[in-house]
Computed example of a mutant assay.
Amino acid sequence: MNDWRIYRGAGLPHDEIQRLPAPPPWRDFSTGSPDDTLAGSDRRLGVKRRLVQNHHPRPAETDAVNAALYLRRPLLVTGNPGTGKSTLAHAVAHELRLGRVLRWPIVSRTTLQDGLYRYDAIGRLQDVQLERAQTGAPGSAAATPAGIGSYIRLGPLGTALLPSEQPRVLLIDELDKSDLDLPNDLLNALEEGEFAIPELERLADREPVVEVLSDDGRKVAVLGGRIRCTTFPFIVLTSNGERDFPAALLRRCIRLELEPPGEEQLRAMIEAHLGTEAAAGDGEQGLVQRFLNREPGEVIATDQLLNALYLTQHASRAERVTRERIADMLMQPLDQPR
């Protein structure tokens, strides 16, 4: 069937959803199990893993990453949307075999507490009340109340600061979306590499070691109500440049401004996600050149190009008008008013 459309808007029910092809590799959530720690990195770096090393990062990028690794300092990465700021954390974790990337997405309501740990006091109170009610019922056996550690879960930052032989990789994504206080609130944790859990400190004389749940979903021991890293994590803070950060934060970070990818980087990225044939056709080359020849200052994200390449592959080669219309729809500049 030549028509690539699944939905036609005719109002007549049909079963052609079965014709829907496999999703783009970067939107395929079916691969891997919930325990597969690298599934998220596969989507970001490309399922053609043998090509990942061919992303051809610029010397400034590798220098900044190595400076952050050597100095045990966070890496503050700024740049336009879609330039690969978040992907950089996954690329480092993949190449250095540092396991799953801990991701902390920032929104306007995010607080430091969200990144360190959460204590479910209400859940604990409800469980205590339920246990008391069950214990008081005739013929019921005495219940053993759950310990306080069952109601504490470490956040991404708290998990990254756990003692470990190798650094964990932590992505603090879109820090510029935070309120004014968060960048300053981060300073002490980033400088000292430790934090306290007051709920556990109060019990330290009676329970010196308490097991809590980490962001990875596993039980970890906390000694004396404090967590202190033995190896400082590799932390990537990303920003789209929507706000300025205080000097106190900037002096604690290695700064990197990511430029839009050049032709070599772009073609390596396409090959990693879609294979070598994805950029070989005349139509595909036209889309790549359109991206590269955009107006100075015009913001088009690389994932917009990947979306256009994937979708135009499924439109009939003869439907030139349709392919161009799809490209126009998917590659609209992000900085133009609607």
Score class of each variant (00 low, 15 high):
N2M: 10
I6W: 12
P24N: 10
D28H: 04
S30R: 09
T31E: 06
T37F: 06
G46E: 14
L51K: 12
V52H: 01
R58N: 05
V65F: 02
N66S: 04
P74R: 02
L76E: 02
L76T: 06
N80S: 10
N80W: 09
P81M: 09
T87D: 05
T87W: 04
G99Q: 08
R100G: 02
V101Y: 14
L116A: 15
Y117V: 15
D127E: 10
L130K: 12
L130Y: 07
R132W: 15
R132Y: 15
A137F: 00
G139T: 06
L154E: 13
Q166V: 07
L175F: 11
D176L: 06
D179A: 05
L180S: 06
N184A: 09
L187C: 03
G193Q: 04
G193W: 03
E201T: 09
E207G: 00
V212T: 07
G225H: 11
T230N: 12
P233E: 00
T238M: 15
G241H: 13
A248W: 10
R251E: 01
P261G: 09
G262W: 06
G262L: 07
E263A: 11
E264S: 10
E271C: 05
A272G: 00
L274G: 12
T276Q: 05
T276W: 11
G286N: 14
L287P: 06
V288T: 01
V288D: 09
F291T: 08
F291N: 07
L292P: 04
N293T: 05
G297W: 13
E298F: 03
E298N: 06
T302E: 13
T302I: 08
L306Y: 15
L309K: 09
R320H: 08
E324D: 11
R325N: 07
L330I: 15
P333H: 04
